[in-house]
């Protein structure tokens, strides 16, 4: 079947099967920024925005994106760069496989709740697993990013 949707603001059509998941469609079409970590909706690495909301692209059928707006980190490069600066300042970078998922989730938080408390930040990113950092440095970095530092 044909999927027609916007990816990072550009109208695209993709040839997909009805049981293909969005992460696979995107990676197959060169959007390598979509990282697949678990393929079972449990780690957050594959997060993309669907109509501005963070969703797990590994577990959403591509067919569900019909007519919708998909944002990968390629569509928010400036914000990702800002967040990466905050991560670097706090030493929150390690293997980086979860970073893109964090970038998109935290970008969404910034749009909706710039003044999020520590608890609200945790609530927002609890679905993004990181096995490297122990989260503390990431939390500090995210706070700085939300403050616009």
């Amino acid at each position: 079947m044909t999927l027609t949707c916007y990816v990072n603001g550009v109208l695209r059509t993709f040839d997909v099967t009805p049981d293909e998941y969005l992460a696979d469609t995107l990676r197959r079409n060169g959007f390598f920024s979509v990282r697949e970590g678990c393929n079972e909706s449990a780690c957050g690495a594959c997060t993309v925005l669907l109509d501005d909301k963070p969703v797990l692209s590994c577990s959403i059928l591509s067919a569900k994106a019909e007519g919708k707006h998909i944002t990968t980190v390629d569509g928010i490069q400036d914000e990702a760069k800002k967040l990466s600066h905050c991560f670097a300042e706090e030493g929150a970078d390690q293997c980086g496989y979860c970073n893109v998922g964090f970038a998109l989730t935290v970008y969404s938080l910034k749009k909706h709740n710039k003044n999020a408390t520590d608890e609200e930040i945790k609530e927002y990113i609890v679905g993004n697993l990181c096995r490297c950092t122990g989260y503390q440095s990431q939390l500090k970095a995210i706070k700085a990013y939300l403050k616009g530092e």
Partner: peptide, 12 residues
């Protein structure tokens, strides 16, 4: 409801 998985999951 807020206790179900992560935010991305609950968006779906």
């Amino acid at each position: 409801v807020r206790e179900v998985m992560g935010l991305q999951f609950r968006n779906m």
